[in-house]
């Protein structure tokens, strides 16, 4: 076990920098290719006035802190993983404190996010239709695929980012206090932390693209929490139906 972990750590040290470079450049190139070859959908939706509450204050609040902490954690983490702390003229102790402090913010905001989006992320039958056409992202044609408050892709992102976040939080705690753990645990934590961060950051870059340039009119929801009715009907028709039914039955007044 020990020698296997040491061997894996040796590979990790040799290849983590190039893996990060490949992952980030791969996603950026993929996103750019999608934008220029297929392009965004529903461009006309951006001009419509926001009407329906899509994100509550708590949702926006936690998303903001999760987003900011995630990006800063990735950047500082890459500096650690590539051993460039001193090269950049930074203090290791200060950067470690900063990284762990960000980790605390990420932990709290991630756990709240996981609780908030847990139930809406259960897959439903109509999600398979979305998967069948990959959300319409592989064609220039405007497609109106069934989707609840979260579409199938967002549900996948929830489970992926949630699982990776939990792995990052646990392994991060171990790496913050490695002296309290057996070296095998610390080595496993280092591997899990780096590879989880790699996958999460690549996924977050794709998530950021889909929430901004790929779907005009979406990003603004992070500021005021509302979306246009047409935007909602286009991207999340099943959710609009649920809202209309709830509204008709007097259960909610979000519209």
């Amino acid at each position: 076990m020990n020698s296997l972990l040491v061997t894996l750590i040796n590979y990790y040290i040799d290849f983590i920098a190039i893996l990060f470079a490949l992952a980030i450049s791969g996603v950026v190139l993929g996103v750019a290719a999608h934008y220029f070859i297929i392009g965004p959908h529903g461009k006309e939706l951006v001009k419509l006035p926001p009407e329906i509450i899509r994100m509550t204050l708590l949702e926006r609040f936690t998303h903001f802190f999760r987003m900011v902490s995630c990006v800063l954690l990735a950047l500082t983490g890459i500096v650690f993983a590539t051993f460039k702390v001193n090269t950049l003229g930074l203090s290791y102790q200060w950067l470690l404190k900063f990284h762990v402090s960000l980790g605390i913010i990420f932990t709290i905001s991630s756990l709240i996010s996981i609780v908030i989006y847990f139930k809406p992320s259960f897959f439903k039958k109509y999600d398979w239709e979305w998967f069948k056409y990959m959300g319409g992202y592989l064609t220039k044609k405007e497609m109106h695929l069934p989707a609840g408050k979260l579409n199938a892709g967002q549900k996948v992102f929830f489970w992926l980012s949630g699982a990776l976040s939990v792995l990052l939080i646990i392994s991060g705690d171990i790496l913050a206090f490695p002296q309290n753990y057996h070296i095998n645990v610390a080595m496993a934590a280092a591997l899990i932390h780096g590879l989880s961060a790699l996958m999460l950051f690549a996924a977050v870059l794709g998530h950021a693209y889909l929430g901004t340039a790929a779907n005009p009119g979406t990003f603004q929801v992070l500021l005021h929490g509302k979306v246009a009715r047409e935007w909602a009907k286009t991207h999340h028709p099943e959710w609009v139906k649920e809202l209309e039914q709830s509204s008709a039955s007097g259960k909610t007044a979000v519209m």
Partner: peptide, 23 residues
Amino acid sequence: AAEAQALDISKAAYVGSQTCISC
């Protein structure tokens, strides 16, 4: 306490002094 743990790092990779002074 940490040193008391069984450990074999003889097969670990060398990383060079520049990496050491990074931290």
